[in-house]
Design a protein around this nucleic acid. Structure first.
Length: 386
RNA sequence: GCCAGGGUGGCCGAGCGGUUUAGGCGGCGGGCUGCAGACCCGCUACACUGGGGUUCGAAUCCUCACCCUGGCUCCA
């Protein structure tokens, strides 16, 4: 199949290192709140890629993390009078509730940053030894300049802008935190404190999947700094390519703006599930290509509900396991080639919609096979209409 | 400012060199109905941000503007 690689900016043929196995790492959420639609999009899109790769015969080893060390978690814990650990555990449970509802397949392995602290410390020590890290006051920084600068995903970072928010004591404006001594948190040779975000993912992904990953997926907002920094850390540690295919999905917008931590315009999956079936939410997300932004609106969700019901109706009508006619074969080919081309789920669904129309007109033989692909690959359960 | 992605009919949204210029929502007319809704049938929008250019031919390619969204160490 072809997949768009953020590193090269091109659609590339997907060729994993091992011809039968795909190693994929997905950046999971920071567990301080319920998941919003943006999270749903990231994990559903990756889920379809995973299901598609499985349908092609690959064994997919999918590792996903939970970032359970974070100031926002501490803040929430303080506010609710419980421990940060309890906050993290609660939102991990909530994450699974939402994702299970949305029929997102479970990862092969879930990791937690807090369980990787010894490994993160080891990496930090190694970077200090190699001369790619330094201590300044209470912080260990990664020396971006010494490592040759950023080059993996981001070009032409504007130094003058970033310079304005530069922290005193850094050697270079782009240097980032590897360990911050705060007096509380985790014990380390550098002092009691907390690790930097980027090292966490490097430690977790390399430990579980090895030095080179086939796919590293995440929301577009993680390209810089998170993924760029991860990449530089990994490269200085191993000298090898860290990730073969970097894949990033675009955002869900609400009132024209990104749904994010700071803007406040969040729509929780939980709230939507009270109004719409999970299948409709999933279909709504998959109607758009993963690299395009989606504007949230109740109206489009309602349209999707109509579409979903139509597909269900057509699927129910196609239950006889008869041979596929030419028409069904053509639609199956369109469906699969759409997914093969950089996961064009919108086009695939368009084909399903058209097929459904024809089925309802009684013009297609053997369409059940395509509806079963909708269920297994797109992960949209087609419920019997009533 | 720099980088990335966009600007298509009242709205959402396909199309990405030339055929019948998707589809949906809405609107309009009809059927059904005691009325309304739902549903069904039909009709309706020759629209592609603006200026140059390439071409026999451009919404589709090039170029310059303008505008929108996102990133530029909280982010999925």
């Amino acid at each position: 199949m072809k997949i768009f690689n953020t590193r090269t900016g091109l659609k590339e043929d997907f060729i994993p290192q091992d011809p039968f196995e795909v190693k994929a790492y997905v950046c999971g959420p920071t567990v301080y709140d319920l998941c919003h639609l943006g999270h749903a999009r990231t994990y559903i899109n990756f889920d379809v890629l995973k299901r598609y790769l499985i349908s092609l015969g690959y064994k997919v080893i999918h590792v996903q993390n939970f970032t359970d060390i974070d100031e926002k978690i501490d803040q929430r814990a303080k506010k609710e009078g419980i421990s940060p650990h309890e906050v993290a555990e609660r939102f991990i449970r909530e994450y699974f509730f939402d994702m299970d509802s949305l029929k997102v397949m479970r990862a092969t392995k879930y990791t937690k940053a807090s369980e990787y602290v010894p490994k993160i410390i080891k990496i930090t020590e190694r970077l200090l030894e190699l001369g790619y890290a330094y201590r300044s006051g209470n912080t260990i920084y990664f020396d971006v300049g010494a490592a040759g600068g950023f080059s993996e995903l981001v070009k032409d970072l504007n130094e003058t802008i970033v310079d304005e928010i530069r922290v005193q004591g850094k050697r270079g404006p782009f240097d980032f935190v590897l360990w911050k001594v705060t007096g509380q948190g985790f014990d380390s040779p550098f002092g009691i404190g907390v690790p930097g975000w980027h090292t966490e993912c490097v430690a977790m992904s390399m430990d579980t999947l090895g030095e080179t990953l086939d796919i590293h997926w995440g929301g577009k907002d993680l390209i810089y700094p998170h993924h760029e920094c991860e990449s530089l850390i990994a490269k200085t540690l191993t000298g090898k390519r860290f990730v073969r295919y970097w894949v990033h999905n675009d955002f869900v917008l609400f009132k024209g703006e990104k749904m994010s931590k700071s803007s406040g315009g969040k729509i929780y999956i939980r709230d939507l599930l009270e109004k719409y079936p999970a299948e409709v939410l999933r279909t709504w997300i998959l109607r758009s290509h993963y690299r395009e932004k989606i504007e949230f609106s109740e109206e489009s969700l309602e349209e999707t509900q109509v579409l979903y019901e139509k597909i269900c109706k057509a699927a129910a009508k196609s239950r006889d396991k008869e041979e596929m006619g030419q028409c069904a074969k053509d639609f199956a080919a369109i469906f699969m080639s759409a997914l093969d081309d950089d996961l064009e789920t919108g086009k695939a669904l368009l084909a399903v919609e058209e097929l459904s129309d024809r089925v309802l007109e009684g013009k297609v033989k053997g369409a059940w096979r395509i509806f079963s692909l909708v269920e297994t690959i797109l992960g949209i359960r087609l419920r019997a209409p009533h």
